[in-house]
């Protein structure tokens, strides 16, 4: 049977579509249930992103479940002195998280709303651009990574991050870790660290710790490169904000309003 170029492409396209549908059904995306990753298999995506429901999060101002989970699984030290603080995820007031969204008529309450912030895993990260040793880089799937064994601690990336998402270990962090989790590395003094989008959990087929920990389902993690993903549906359905997107960094953390 002779196969010309056209029919070959058509057949390929059909096969691809069939595969995508099968995958989508298997992942539960075409059904009503929320998507749970297949057990024990690494999560792969083309462009990871996060959507944070501002209202659902702000409705529970005292809740720090996500932050606690994040800092626990990543051995993040706890320093009481704000000058020494290490933060991967934390809460800022709305006016500090979104300085460009200032609105005097929105009222004090709106300005003070707590907003969960973290590394934005930018499409075009300024931090990786400035690193003189390539100790921080963007992975194919969009995760902005850190190599704590290569970092020389120059803190150029800290100066370059428009979100204050990077922390530097001013002293040895180990004594300040409440409970060391041996499954994740601790850091040494003199290196920079930040949210890693739980890349170590993605590799084990688990969702990021903050997403799992949120009791209110305010955090949605997913593949922005997949038009059928839940995060893409949410972003299409609801208006959203990004922090300082006018800087051209392309933040991949979205805030649903």
């Amino acid at each position: 049977m002779a196969i010309d170029r056209r029919s070959f492409l058509a057949a390929g396209g059909l096969a691809g579509l069939a595969l995508a549908i099968r995958r989508a059904v298997a992942e539960g995306r075409l059904t009503a249930e929320p998507w749970a990753p297949p057990e024990g298999q690494a999560l792969t995506g083309t462009r990871w992103g996060m959507a944070i429901d501002l209202e659902a999060c702000a409705a529970h101002p005292g809740c720090t479940a996500c932050i606690e989970a994040c800092h626990r699984v990543h051995n993040v030290p706890r320093f009481d002195d704000p000058k020494r603080e290490i933060k991967w995820t934390w809460k800022e007031t709305f006016e500090h998280a979104f300085p460009a969204q200032e609105n005097p008529w929105a009222g004090e309450e709106r300005a003070e709303l707590p907003v969960l912030v973290m590394c934005n895993h930018c499409e075009n990260p300024p931090c990786t651009r400035v690193c003189p040793t390539r100790a921080t880089w963007k992975r194919e799937d969009g995760v902005v990574m850190m190599d704590w064994h290569r970092c020389i601690g120059c803190r150029y990336c800290v100066a370059a991050c428009p979100y204050g998402s990077r922390s530097f270990n001013w002293v040895d962090p180990r004594p300040a870790i409440p409970e060391i989790d041996p499954s994740f590395p601790t850091r040494t003094k003199g290196v920079v660290e930040k949210c890693n989008l739980c890349e170590e959990r993605l590799a084990e087929g688990k969702l990021p710790a903050c997403v799992t920990a949120c009791p209110y389902g305010a955090l949605t993690f997913g593949d922005l490169g997949d038009p059928e993903s839940r995060i893409r549906r949410l972003l299409a359905e609801r208006p959203s904000l990004r922090r300082k997107s006018f800087l051209g960094t392309g933040p991949q953390v979205f805030y649903l309003v």
Partner: peptide, 29 residues
Amino acid sequence: FILADLGQPYRALNMILHPSPRSILFWDM
């Protein structure tokens, strides 16, 4: 002064071992 400012001065040679021409610090060196 640059050396004094490094958090991990023992690793300063990483700037040469893993050069990154996109970084202005590389050119400054």
